[in-house]
Each structure stands twice: as structure tokens, then as C-alpha cells.
Nucleic acid binder design. Structure first.
Lengths: 352, 352
DNA sequence: TGACTCTAGTTCAACGATGTACCTTGTGCC
DNA sequence: GGCACAAGGTACATCGTTGAACTAGAGTCA
């Protein structure tokens, strides 16, 4: 201990411990892994030596011998954006609970970057991959014989038929979620609904198809209720500021609007602020509903009703599937629907 | 290719390639690592086989042999919070540029979790650690003989004297940053400044000491300018909603205020919204300055002047130091001051 | 021709941990 | 006394990769 400055010492190995005590390496291994056939005295002496030499098992050696490292790669577009950063946090927490570590791989660079995730990153590293593709299409997936590592896809951009062998899919049904959000407003007597979140530019392409799906669900709900000509309001970006300016435009052009379904909670926050500034009561005159249930959603004014994708359960489900595959399951691709839930707060209310 | 469903095949190894071609494993290794002493014909045949068998080198075996894996652990409190999630993204990007991967370790669980980071996570994994401690104190660091892996500390909670052997420190000088922010307002003729961001509860303890340092810098700037009795406004949390309500209180109790230094940009965004709602012009009547330069700062209304800690440069600096240590440097701890920069936007302006 | 060098390889050991198979004691029991 | 048997170990091979050391053959040059 307190070795002080000097040569950076090699980390202690089982060999060091064995040598110091005059026992075999295997006995040390047995102590570390809580295996039988070690006398209580020996066990204790080994444990003392482990503490003294500050021994830690070396994961790479374990992986060589046993085939697993406890490492899981999480490949998502970017942490910039509330949803993905909260999702990553959920994965990190759930992985830690299971004694696993998360490797973060950002695919913001686009299609090539995503393809390289599937190709195995040019190096085999870790035991499995959680992958949220945005750009990779059927063409790529369909020609992928089999993933090199156990993989679970997440998101909404994967066709079930394209799932490669050795992978599973936890699907988020954004279309239904948006449908339910709109239906919620309709059930409260709102009839003049707007969808806030269409993107003009393909620049923010990442949210684009999410937006398209949510818009689809919105239309479906309105069609089912016989409400015609719903209003679709474009935004410059899925951000709070985008919501603020867009809602100003929206209410000027469509003063009859009494309910707004927002593409995500950042937009919804902007909508709330804008409505407040315009002196329009929420939920008295206009109801607002968001998507994602971000951490701040309960603290907006009024508190935001939103669709909760339950990131923690999603992460847990995904990791359970992945760990099953890592531990040997090799059946056909499984598809699991990720649950979501409408969380009702103050920004929506029944209408006289 | 297209192996289809069936037994999950072992990943191909160099041995497989060598066997198929009747060459030695070492020759395959030489091709993979672009080493000389391989004839052009042989090289090509090996490359073809690599493609056919979809071979990828196995990092754990490489690490065993060479001692490095290309993996770096990033231990930060949590991704919930704009600053840390943008910081993590910066690290992920910079690491990818350097051909390294980031392992994410969340220390939100607190002191014990932080201690275990220093103790080496109970398993040796990866080549080095980037660690932003919040709670670990001198007592722990000082008794740490030497870190088990090369480590670079970041943040502001480390005393230089306590740095363990084998580590470096990239310090963020929050006190000076807050000082400069206040001085900026003073130089524009503002005299009635408030600091927004003191925390009553120790619940949000993570930001607590950051807040304390920034408040210290604020006081220092005012004292130097001879401004007495600055106002310090408490907030329930360092969030936008916290800023909104706190600024309402602040302006009611202190209508003379003409400049607000905010603990972070989320608070500052709240301040801008609140001031707008109160009909107080920014920057006409009150100037607002934030901290962190979050991605949305340029898009607030008016655009937010803020202190930019330049997360990308920080990440690059940290990784360079860490990689030097990983590659063998074993000198005494180095301390580097992370630069920051005041980004002037519309929320501050000179005062008549 | 002989001494040398260069190219294109080969063989071997080693990194650290662990599963399998084997060995050595001491004890209990007939 | 002889044997079985368990408890508490040891010895060895192995996972995939790479550095060091070696070799066989061809070309160079005095």
C-alpha cells in the first residue's frame, strides 16, 4: 500500500498472490469465485493477500477464458436531446444493477457510422449490442446474414421481417402513442386539434420519421372521431424554442384551436410558455399534451400531461432479452412491444 | 456469408483463417496489423479470407497481449442534466476520433459509488478513467496510494495536493468564471446585481458546491467593484422551472435589480421567461448571463449571454493527458486549467 | 566462392484466468 | 492392517493475439 510515486506497478495478478502464499493459482481463483475445496484458513489468508495487494480480476483474461466480459454497447444517435440522454441514463443504471457496464457509441455521424455498428465496429468488443437505428434501412438489414454479436434493436425504424438472425427487437409504437394522445384530448371534448411537430427541413432528419409516425397516429385518431381537417403546425426544430415560435404562429392563424398534440415534451414546454404569453389559459381554453415524459414534465406550469415511454422498463426489457441471448439463447428474433402510458397532469382537462 | 439461422457460430479467429489458407497465424496477424514481411499475393489471399469469414480481432485477446484495450471509463454523476449529457457526448465524440470507446459509469448513487470508481470497480476493465467526483473528499483521495489505472480528474472538487500518483487534473475554474460573468455586467454599467442559484436544500447536493464556488466568484467581483450588499436569490433546483419562480420572487422583493448572474443556463432560461412575463425588458432593463453555453443558449429570446466551458476542448485535453499516461508517461500529477470563454449574445448589453 | 543481407515466412512463449483431471493426505470402518 | 473416500489441494491445457527469435531461400557484392 501507499506505494508512492515511482514505476507504475503492474496490477497484481493471481500469480502474485499465489506466489506470496505458496499456494497454487487455482486455489486463488477458487477463493475469488467462491468455489469449494478451499480450507477456511487458506481462504482467509488468500483474502487478506487480495486486500493487501489490491488485486482485481482482469476482465479481458476472464473474457478470453469464459467468453464474456459483462460489457454491452449502446449505440444511439446522440446524447444531445433530452429523450436520448435520459434513455442512456436508464440503460446505464439498469446495466449497473445487473453487474454489466455500458459502452456508449454515438452514431450521430450518420449512415456509415450505423453500418459500422452492425459490422461489429471492426473489433469484437463486449458481449452484445443495443442499437437504435435511425437511418439504416431494410436494404442493409436484409442483407445482413447474422449479427456478429447478440443484438437488440430499439426504436421504431425496423421492419420485423428484416431482423437478422441472432437479434431481437423492442418496438416503440409511436403511432399508437400519438393516437392515444389525440384520443385523450378528444375524449375531453376538444374538437379543434393541432399537431405541433412537423419538420420542414430534413436537416433534423433524426426526429423526422418519429415525427411522421406520431403525425400518422394523430391523423388516425381524428379520422376515427370524424374530425376533419386537423391542423398540422411545422416547427423549425424539436426544441422548446421551436415550440414557442410555432405556437405563436399557430394561434394567430387558427384561433379556434383548443388542443395541441406535441411531438415531444420540449415542444410542449414551448407551447405552454407561448400560450401563457398570449394570455390563453391552459387547460381552460387549450389543452396541451406532450411525448417522452422528461424529468421536468411534472414541473412545468401547468404540469404537463404527456405520454410516458417508461425508459426504465424499456431498458430493463431490452437488457433481459440481450442477456438471454448472451447466455446462449439462439432462437428466432423476438419482437416485444414496449409499453407506454399516458400520464395525466394539469395541462389537459375535461372541457365544458 | 448468409449463414442463416442455426447454431450461433463462434466468431472467426486468426487460427481459422490461417488453417483455411495453410499459412501461419502470425502471417495473418501481420496482414491485419499492416506489418511487413508478407508477400503481396499472400496478403491478398488473407484479406479475402478475412472478408469471407467476417473476421474481427478480439479486443480482449489484444488487451491480454499488449496491455491496452482502447476503452476509457467516464465516471460522472448522471446524464440527467444538460451540462453532463452534453459533456458525455463531447467525450464520446472525441474518444471515437481517437479510435477509443467510452464506457459510461454513473455515480449518481453517491459516495460509495464514487469510492468504488477509485478502487477500480472491483474489476480491471479498460485502460484509464475520466472521473468527475462530486462527493469524494480529501480524506479519501489523500489515503489513496496510487490509482489502479491512469486517471484524469475533472471538475472543481479536487485539491491539487490530494491528487494520487498516476493521475492528472483538468480543473474548471468556476469561481473565476462567475467572477468574469459578474464583471461583465458591471462593465456594462449594471450596479444592482443578483446571483440566482443558491440552493436551500442539500437535496440537490450535486450542484451545491458548484453553486458555492460560483457564488464566491460573484461576491469577489462585486467586492472589487465596491458594490455592497449584492442580492442572492435561492432556487429550489437548478432547473428552468426553478428559475422562473425564483425570479418572480426576486423582482418583487428587489425591483432595483438590473443584472442577474445565473448558476447555469437552465436557470437563465427560466429567468428570461419570467422577466418577459413580468414585462421587464432584457437587456433594456435587466441583463441576464448564464453558465454552460448549452446547445439551446443561442436560441432563447433574447439569445443568452453565457460562460462557455468549451466542453469539446475540455474532452480533448482530458483525453490527450489520459492517453499519454496510458502510453507510459508516469510523471507527477499534472494540473491543467480548462479554458472558458464568455460568449456575448443578446441578453446583456451596455447600459446608458 | 564465400560472406553478407534481405524477404517471407515459421515457431514458440507469454499475457491472466479457469475448467478438467489428477494427486495427496488423514480419517473411518470392517 | 487394508481399503474407500472425502477434503484440500496441484498441474496442465486453453482461450486469441502478438513480440522475439529463428530459418530457408534468393539476391548482392567484393
Amino acid at each position: 500500500m501507499m506505494s508512492g510515486p515511482g514505476e507504475r506497478p503492474r496490477n497484481a495478478t493471481m500469480r502474485d498472490i499465489a506466489a506470496r502464499l505458496g499456494v497454487s493459482i487455482k486455489t486463488v481463483s477458487n477463493v475469488v469465485n467462491d468455489r469449494p475445496n478451499v480450507g477456511p484458513g487458506t481462504r482467509e489468508r488468500v483474502q487478506d493477500a487480495i486486500r493487501e495487494l489490491n488485486y482485481r480480476p482482469q476482465v479481458s483474461a476472464q473474457q478470453m477464458r469464459t467468453g464474456t466480459s459483462g460489457l454491452i454497447t449502446l449505440a444511439i444517435p446522440s446524447l444531445a436531446g433530452t429523450y436520448f440522454s435520459e434513455l442512456a441514463q436508464a440503460f446505464a443504471d439498469e446495466a449497473q444493477r445487473r453487474g454489466r457496464s455500458i459502452m456508449l457509441h454515438s452514431t450521430a455521424a450518420g449512415r456509415e457510422e450505423e453500418r459500422s455498428v452492425l459490422a461489429g465496429f471492426t473489433r469484437v468488443l463486449g458481449d452484445g449490442v443495443v442499437f437504435n437505428p435511425l437511418l439504416i434501412g431494410e436494404d442493409v438489414l436484409a442483407h445482413l446474414g447474422r449479427t456478429i454479436l447478440p443484438t437488440v434493436f430499439i426504436g421504431e425504424h425496423v421492419e420485423e421481417a428484416d431482423l437478422p438472425a441472432g437479434s431481437d427487437y423492442v418496438r416503440t409504437d409511436n403511432q399508437s402513442a400519438a393516437h392515444d394522445a389525440a384520443a385523450h384530448l378528444l375524449s375531453h371534448g376538444r374538437r379543434h386539434l393541432a399537431y405541433l411537430g412537423a419538420l420542414e427541413s430534413t436537416e433534423a432528419q433524426q426526429e423526422h420519421s418519429t415525427s411522421r409516425l406520431r403525425l400518422g397516429g394523430f391523423h388516425r385518431a381524428l379520422a376515427a372521431a370524424g374530425v376533419m381537417e386537423p391542423v398540422v403546425q411545422a416547427v423549425p426544430a424539436w426544441s422548446q424554442e421551436g415550440g414557442i415560435s410555432a405556437v405563436r404562429t399557430l394561434m394567430r392563424q387558427h384561433p379556434e384551436i383548443d388542443g395541441i398534440v406535441c411531438g415531444n415534451d420540449d415542444l410542449a414546454r414551448g407551447a405552454l410558455l407561448s400560450l401563457h404569453a398570449l394570455g390563453i389559459e391552459v387547460p381552460g381554453k387549450v389543452s396541451v399534451i406532450g411525448h417522452d415524459n422528461i424529468l421536468e414534465a411534472p414541473f412545468t406550469s401547468p404540469p404537463l400531461t404527456t405520454v410516458d415511454p417508461d425508459k426504465r422498463t424499456l431498458a430493463a426489457t431490452v437488457l433481459d432479452l440481450l442477456l438471454e441471448r448472451i447466455e446462449g439463447y439462439d432462437g428466432p428474433p423476438r419482437v416485444v412491444e414496449a409499453p407506454y402510458q399516458l400520464v395525466e397532469r394539469g395541462s389537459t382537462a375535461a372541457h365544458g
